[in-house]
């Protein structure tokens, strides 16, 4: 599944940086019915985590009221050069990962 990650390529040590993520997911609420009356089973992302060189810096739980293709933006402090790893986990064994590098001067 496609994901769009926006992490600044470079930052000064101690800078507060914004990280923006957008991922593909239908986020089916589980409250809707088909024309025939059958319940459409819930299919959502339930959790998102961001690790910065292995240490968790941001985590979010997601719920049925969140729109399709969830967009999350958050802030962290640029401490050292390295890698951000992103992971989305959801219903029906959904799992998606992405990563982005940063150079800290």
């Amino acid at each position: 599944m496609a994901a769009l990650i926006n992490v600044p390529a470079r930052a000064k040590r101690g800078d507060i940086i914004e990280i923006r993520t957008l991922t593909s997911h239908i986020m089916e609420t589980g409250f809707r019915h088909t024309v025939a009356g059958a319940l459409v089973p819930r299919d959502i992302i339930t959790s998102f985590t961001c690790r910065y060189n292995g240490a968790e810096v941001f985590r979010a739980d997601l719920f049925p009221a969140i729109a399709a293709n969830p967009y999350l933006s958050f802030f962290t402090v640029a401490k050292e050069s390295g890698k951000f790893e992103f992971e989305w986990i959801g219903d029906n064994g959904f799992s998606s990962t992405a990563s982005a590098s940063i150079t800290v001067e």
């Binding site: 994901a3 769009l4 926006n6 923006r20 957008l22 991922t23 593909s24």
Partner: peptide, 12 residues
């Protein structure tokens, strides 16, 4: 482009 969900489809 990093907040436009249409870009997810362009990537696909």
């Amino acid at each position: 482009d990093s907040s436009n969900p249409g870009m997810l489809f362009v990537l696909d």
